[in-house]
């Protein structure tokens, strides 16, 4: 009887609680979440949304070095589709698109997701400290400043007798003539240099996801006689589907827009547009030219198309990985 009374009293006090709130406290509780969000909103608006809108507008103008400060680029009268026509009629457009697709897919499949998953699986199935140390070492390439990192790759690929690979591996084995390997095999180095950094991101995400899988599943599978491959295929991979989606999507978008390693390593060469990817073209058009004829409008158009490609890729990934199902509340919680 006394217990019921106490419960009734607590229930009645809870139900009367909202009524006791003043208007200002209601306003405060309504505004509080927005106050917490506001720094992010300001930063995103200032440094992402407004530049994006500006780049979008610039892509319809012919703003360049010759008319900077003169052209009123914000006036619709100066907007045309010329830049987009120029891109799609550019004779090197297919090559740049092909380079981009190859660079993104190869780096993603073999390194950013593939190798990351392999490293994560191995390092979570060996001695915990050794695995941790290995992951830490692998992270070094991400922690190294890009310029230093690329200089190391250039030293590796250098011509004989300075190049490390030529001097210590290829030379003694009698392979090649000691050429500058960045000239003879530029794509190998572009993908390796990017892939080694890229793999470290997925490695961390996947490792933590694998570590979070309850051990009971693994033990149960072993009791049932599952092989290592079967455990990975039927337990680990399905259980880390969400991190897989995240890493694949994030790294695709990241690779599509990343160009700094390629810029420093080959600058799109050695031949004509040989390793030139989409984002590097946008950079070259907008910011880099021997005679300084930088074309900001034209470069913006390349960048806008890249943003559209990125959005389409993200939507495709979300569909393929059934994002809606992934974010649904677990069925056990719905009961």
């Amino acid at each position: 009887m006394s217990k019921n009374f106490q419960l009734e009293r607590e229930t009645s006090s809870l139900s009367s609680f909202p009524n006791s709130k003043s208007f200002f406290s209601k306003l405060k509780s309504w505004l509080l979440p927005y106050a917490f969000l506001s720094p992010t909103l300001v930063v995103v608006t200032l440094f992402f949304f407004i530049p994006l809108v500006m780049v979008f507008i610039l892509s319809f103008t012919n703003l360049d070095m010759t008319n900077f400060g003169i052209l009123k680029w914000w006036q619709p009268a100066n907007w045309t589709l010329d830049n987009y026509v120029k891109i799609f009629t550019n004779r090197f457009f297919p090559r740049i698109l092909n380079n981009t697709l190859m660079y993104v897919s190869m780096t993603l499949i073999f390194f950013n997701v593939g190798m990351a998953l392999v490293i994560a699986l191995i390092t979570t199935n060996i001695n915990r400290r050794v695995g941790f140390a290995f992951r830490l070492i692998w992270l070094m390439c991400r922690l190294t400043p890009v310029v230093v990192y690329i200089m190391m790759w250039k030293a590796l690929a250098g011509p004989a007798p300075m190049g490390v690979l030529n001097k210590h591996i290829l030379g003694p084995l009698g392979i090649g003539g000691g050429e500058f390997l960045l000239n003879t095999n530029p794509w190998v180095f572009v993908i390796l240099a990017n892939g080694f950094i890229g793999a470290s991101f997925g490695m961390i995400i996947f490792s933590s996801a694998i570590e979070a899988i309850p051990k009971d599943y693994m033990i149960a599978s072993k009791v049932d006689g599952a092989s290592t491959w079967q455990t990975i295929r039927y337990i680990t991979i399905p259980m880390i589907k969400w991190p897989l989606l995240f890493v694949t999507t994030y790294q695709t978008l990241s690779l599509l827009t990343s160009f700094e390693q390629i810029l420093l390593l080959t600058n799109g060469g050695p031949g004509l547009y040989e390793t030139e990817v989409w984002s590097l073209t946008a950079y070259h058009r907008a910011f880099s030219s021997y005679f300084g004829n930088t074309q900001w409008g034209y470069g913006s158009a390349w960048a806008v198309i890249l943003v559209i490609i990125g959005i389409i890729m993200a939507i495709i990934y979300l569909r393929v990985f059934k994002f809606n199902e992934l974010i649904q509340e677990p069925k056990i919680d719905q009961l």
Partner: peptide
């Protein structure tokens, strides 16, 4: 500095 960057620097600096 590379010529292209050098020119860009002047133009943007002027702006």
């Amino acid at each position: 500095l590379d010529w292209g960057d050098y020119i860009t620097e002047f133009v943007l600096g002027y702006g």
